[in-house]
Design a protein around this nucleic acid. Sequence first.
DNA 1: CACCGTTGTAACCATTATAGTTATAACCAT
DNA 2: ATGGTTATAACTATAATGGTTACAACGGTG
Lengths: 138, 138
Amino acid sequence: MGQISTRFSMAVHTLSLIAFSPNECTGDFIAGSVNTNPVVIRRMMGMLKKAGLVDVRPGVGGASLLKDPSEITLLDVYRAVNVTEENQLFRIHENPNIACPVGRNIEQVLQAELRDAQSAMEQRLAQTTLDQLIHKFQ
Amino acid sequence: MGQISTRFSMAVHTLSLIAFSPNECTGDFIAGSVNTNPVVIRRMMGMLKKAGLVDVRPGVGGASLLKDPSEITLLDVYRAVNVTEENQLFRIHENPNIACPVGRNIEQVLQAELRDAQSAMEQRLAQTTLDQLIHKFQ
DNA sequence: CACCGTTGTAACCATTATAGTTATAACCAT
DNA sequence: ATGGTTATAACTATAATGGTTACAACGGTG
């Protein structure tokens, strides 16, 4: 099927929490709201940290956003936690038969189409900011 | 990672082949062009058949398109071979803590966003027809 | 009718990603 | 030093993928 993992939705949840209550967001607290294991949260937070979205305080505990919520888009989060080779959403079968006119060209032709389709999705993700989201949690 | 499987690109390859040379497209021939096992092709062809895109002839061998190539879009192919529950590209973590304002609303808020993002991708896939593709294989 | 290439499936396997879990080391304010 | 926290390794169960072998069913041809 190749669905996009819940790590993405958990990351959005987590960043919303941090923006919402910046003082109490330990891994255990977040895990309690997301309803998963704290290690799952910490692993995902490591990706957000590597992407420069959050700062996590070892020892003392807690995390804070490194950007204003209006500057963090869903695409930023998606790219942070959804690391695939070459950032490709679609995979293409490898080594088709180059003796066949279809096999010879399929990769290049499809790649252009799929890049555009992925791009359309990402542009939509880029239009929504964390700030817009948290306003819907009243 | 949750990338979309190569079954999709193999299906596009297969349909292009059938449109290209409608007379010699047995499972083995297609498998030779895609460079995979014939059973993988037959499994995927079963999905295309179920979706009403192709007709396969048991015994005699070969397959043919049930629609004009100008009437088959990449979205049709994507939907045929990429069957996920509820046709959802994105998964969302389940049972968040409803005692938390974020946990209580995250699913509904995210679902709307992700549905739109998925829709943007699908609309781009719907813009490309098989006919357009095979013209690029000259 | 018998043959033979083909399709349709079931069954099995190796690989990979995910999500959860336990355990342990490192961190740091008190 | 203590205690709560983060960081990370290691292990597990589950699931999807892609490949493979095997075999039954199909259907034209000799």
